[in-house]
């Protein structure tokens, strides 16, 4: 469904992503692993159209995405829950969610999706008129995911959804991802919690300083020595 080919992305003159190639198949959960600064977030930003490519290409459902403005990419069915959540802190929960659905033109569908998010995260429903900035970190993360879901994406990209969360909260988030997967949403997941991510993932790619070092199925990577050493904390 998504094909990234020889993609190079730069900030100014510094290349952050140096020619990576990977694919995401429909219905899969694919995870990107990598040390800090490896270029994972940069990759997601480029797919969302927030950064321009230096070279290479992105294809989504057979159509080129590079060069398409960000708001058109959302309309094509790609949503992102960005790193650090980036909620609209002074807007209410409901307004945040409505912004997630900004590109949609079916009010009835939006309303039923609102209900779905509230169903998934009851705390958001109970406090829907409160400002997003007043919520706890974990609750904000739920809102960030809910907001990304509101555009009814075919491909949902989550950048470190468990950042700063307690183990229990992380489990909740992972369970949500699995629910979404079972509903047929394709997911591209960036996670520091490698074991949780890999046990969910159909496929994983390991990035290092802008290059993809290797890739395999999620299960295989879980057992891989290199991965164990670098990301799972085993000696």
């Amino acid at each position: 469904m998504l094909e990234v080919k020889d993609m190079v992305v730069a900030y100014g003159r510094v290349n952050a992503v140096k020619g990576i190639t990977f694919t995401v198949e429909k219905g899969q959960v694919v995870t990107l692993l990598g040390t800090n600064g490896a270029g994972k977030s940069t990759t997601l930003r480029a797919i969302s159209g927030l950064l321009k490519l230096v070279s290479g290409s992105i294809t989504f459902e057979g159509q080129r995405l590079d060069g398409v403005p960000a708001h058109k990419i959302v309309e094509r069915g790609i949503a992102q829950s960005p790193e650090g959540r980036r909620l609209f802190r002074r807007m209410s929960v409901e307004d945040n969610l409505k912004l997630g659905a900004y590109s949609r033109k079916d009010p009835a569908g939006v309303r039923s999706d609102l209900a779905r998010v509230y169903d998934l995260f009851p705390v958001l429903g109970e406090r829907r008129h409160e400002a997003a900035g007043l919520f706890s970190g974990g609750e904000q993360q739920m809102l960030a995911i809910g907001r990304a879901m509101m555009s009814q994406p075919k491909l949902l990209m989550l950048d470190e959804p468990s950042m700063g969360l307690s183990p229990i909260m992380t489990q909740t988030i992972m369970r949500t991802i699995r629910t979404l997967q079972s509903e047929g949403v394709t997911i591209l997941l960036v996670e520091q919690n490698a074991s949780a991510a890999l046990s969910l993932a159909d496929r994983g790619y390991v990035l290092e300083v802008g290059h993809i070092m290797f890739s395999d199925t999620g299960r295989a990577l879980l057992g891989d020595d290199r991965v164990k050493r670098a990301y799972l904390g085993a000696s």
């Binding site: 969302s48 927030l50 960000a70 909620l87 609209f88 912004l99 900004y102």
Partner: peptide, 24 residues
Amino acid sequence: SRIGRGWVAIREDELAAEAMGVNT
């Protein structure tokens, strides 16, 4: 309105607004 919500989103966090599909 929807436009107003988009405007406020731009004020709050332009990059996030763009990522949500707002034609900033």
